[in-house]
Amino acid sequence: MRKEWFGAVIALAVVAMVSYVWLAPPAREPAPAVTLPTLEGESAALSDYRGGPVMVVFWATTCTTCIAEMPDLVALHQKLADRGLSILGVAMAYDPPDQVRALVERRALPYEIVLDNEGAIARAFDNVRVTPTTVLIDPAGQIVWQRIGHLDFDAVESQIRGMLDEAQAS
């Protein structure tokens, strides 16, 4: 009887370990340590934004999808910036700063705009080449996901609200 019990416990432990490995959420990678030169000529480290979720949006002035999602980004910023969300719009290296500045003014973008003049930020984020590419970083500085193309902003907002609620509760 003891041998059967011992065998059942061992089998249960093996099943539990295999299930944990199989079903555990994937480990998140830390966001790269990059310097962010802003459109205003200032500079910040990405790590300065820890403590709240961060959306890093790689975009270009000639990207129609990027332009089309800007109202959604503005709305998301207006809804959640006060609660701790930071949105960083990273202009691609091939975009002339004057062209970026003109579009930002024309669109009245309220979130931080970063100039990736040398392409170092794009390279640090898995060599981004396609716009829009959006990266969501959790409050601890871990990459949650990286996506190419137009986003489902309702789903993104819901996910960010969950992060904000979780951060506020702890």
Rank of each mutant, 00 (worst) to 15 (best):
A27E: 13
D138V: 09
P71V: 04
W22Q: 15
P26L: 14
I10H: 10
I143T: 01
A169G: 05
S158R: 13
V144S: 00
L80K: 02
L164C: 05
I113K: 01
S43F: 06
L115Q: 06
I10A: 15
G84C: 05
G7T: 14
W59H: 11
F6Y: 12
R161Q: 11
Y49S: 00
V128M: 07
A108I: 04
P53I: 00
G162H: 06
E69G: 07
M55I: 08
A140H: 07
F153N: 02
A91L: 03
T35P: 05
V130F: 14
M92S: 13
A122W: 11
A124N: 13
W5V: 10
I67P: 02
C66K: 03
M70K: 08
E29H: 13
V34W: 13
K3W: 15
L80N: 05
E42Q: 15
V34G: 15
I87K: 03
D72F: 09
P30G: 12
A155D: 09
L88K: 00
M55S: 05
M92D: 09
F125C: 01
Q142F: 14
A167D: 03
G89Q: 01
V130C: 09
R161H: 03
A124L: 10
A155I: 01
T61W: 10
A91G: 02
P37Q: 14
A122R: 11
V90A: 02
R107G: 03
